[in-house]
Design a protein around this nucleic acid. Sequence first.
DNA 1: GAAACTGCACCGACTGGTCGGTTAAGTTTT
DNA 2: AAAACTTAACCGACCAGTCGGTGCAGTTTC
Lengths: 213, 213
Amino acid sequence: MPRKAGRPPEQTRRILLDAAATVIRNRGITATLDDIAREAGVSKGGLIYHFASKDELILALATDLLDAFRKAVHAALSPDDQTAGRLTRAYIHACLDPTDDEHTIRESLTLTAHLITSPEVAALAHDDARRWQAELDADGLPADLVTLVVAAADGASYTPIWGGSIHTAAHQRLKHQLIALTHDPTAWKLVGQHRTAAPADSAGTRMPGHRQD
Amino acid sequence: MPRKAGRPPEQTRRILLDAAATVIRNRGITATLDDIAREAGVSKGGLIYHFASKDELILALATDLLDAFRKAVHAALSPDDQTAGRLTRAYIHACLDPTDDEHTIRESLTLTAHLITSPEVAALAHDDARRWQAELDADGLPADLVTLVVAAADGASYTPIWGGSIHTAAHQRLKHQLIALTHDPTAWKLVGQHRTAAPADSAGTRMPGHRQD
DNA sequence: GAAACTGCACCGACTGGTCGGTTAAGTTTT
DNA sequence: AAAACTTAACCGACCAGTCGGTGCAGTTTC
């Protein structure tokens, strides 16, 4: 039964995590505990009270990031879409939907990049990736299609690192095209698979009930 | 009229850059100049003689990395392929071909990720990305196709970060499928584009003369 | 040809400052 | 009162960059 002094500890931890994210995305992983504490409006001692070490803070931050993305995907799940590939579509949206905070993607990417240094964090990321793999595999789409679509969504979401933006018309078109692919896998003629040829105009067959696109 | 004593400086710089890449991919961007110098078999003073500061070393390293990738792509250019999309295909190969050193991709990615911290390096990366954009745009393929294919190649090449591997059968299949797409853009029914429908069996129309796939 | 000289490449001890983490002394809430 | 929380001062380790110096290759002068 935790007592409270001033602010509830959960809230302080949240503030500290957000501050850490902000500072690290600006100053890199070499950002000081002092910097982070200052950004959070807390003393370094206070920070250490909540996160015993910098490593622990980083680990918590990584967990938080992975969690946030998972939540974003689930928030993007369209309730009235029950067809195969609905999770994949949500994944695409989470990767490529323009957010209100236009820096969010770039920030979390820079962060993620730095986080990989630590073995524990890397292990965390690997576990998370395996979980996505399993979940997306069970989404009812051809495996090779999922590989392509997810790779494209991932790759596109990284573009802010290279100075690009997700808000581009080109990227939004890419998003719609990827989603269209998940709705009609036959639009993509899989190489090296033995299938009867699909009618040429099947691309026009869009599924109803999915998000605004 | 430069005199020579000891080793030619170019060679030492090369050794130092390689050592820096090795150490940084293992210990992260926080790797010590001492660490790097030791790895190179050179004293710290010697290192500083060639690279005035750590930042300068990192910048040189980034330039080197970008250069190496560009060279890899040009090395992957098939000489007897003059059809549209040949640069894009080379790009795909550079991203997804298994190399002899199976760690190379993961290493350079970790490195790249760290490098983004520095503004100068970021500017370098952005310029490089713009250059790729321009070159790939002039490759004779539909713009949206290039966006998709390059995003997928990029995204797939990042998988080692998430604990995956490029050597997977799935990824090699993806590679072949991406290349097939560049050979026959009509295999991919572009969404939101007004085109006359292509014959359904056009997927079978493969161009001759391209690499073993 | 050999002594004197020049300058490049490199060395490693040292330093000034930085940063992760500790501690003792509070303050606030229950 | 006592747990929960916060703080400022402090410590010790570490590290980027400095600096005086060494050795060697080639040049000049005699």
